[in-house]
Amino acid sequence: MKNRSKIAVAVVIVAALFLLWITTGTKGKEVPYVSVAELLEGDFSQDRFRLGGNVRAGTINISEENLLDVEFVLEQGEEGIVVHYNKTRPDLFEDGCEVIVEGKLISGEFYADNLMTKCASRYEGDLRNAENYELGEI
């Protein structure tokens, strides 16, 4: 075999091995993104999940003993689930805000070890805050 073909074969083998390794590398790192309904129906107590939804207004309850401990209801339409979280909360975490939590389901409640907020709404779009506008004459 010529050197050139040897190199071509080597390149292909290296690339193929890497690709195989990448595509199988997701095993064990997968975190399914589920809805509250799916989570409550299934038997998922062992696995990690990601949940997305809004913080139901008025449900944020910060523990008396520990400022870091919080529980709240994550809602998706009608459905809701209690979420426990005991690490630093993002600054944008508040009533009604959109959050993504990652963690485990333990006897019907969700224990999150990762909480991300997505509160762009304040800066995108809505100008209709009573303090900031007045109705002009049309």
Binding site: R122, Y123, L127, N132, Y133, E134, L135, I138
Partner: peptide, 15 residues
């Protein structure tokens, strides 16, 4: 422009 009928006194401000 902003929606007709609205006069904005102050903007939202930058994140």
């Amino acid at each position: 422009p902003v929606d007709p009928g609205i006069v904005v006194r102050d903007g939202n401000g930058l994140n």
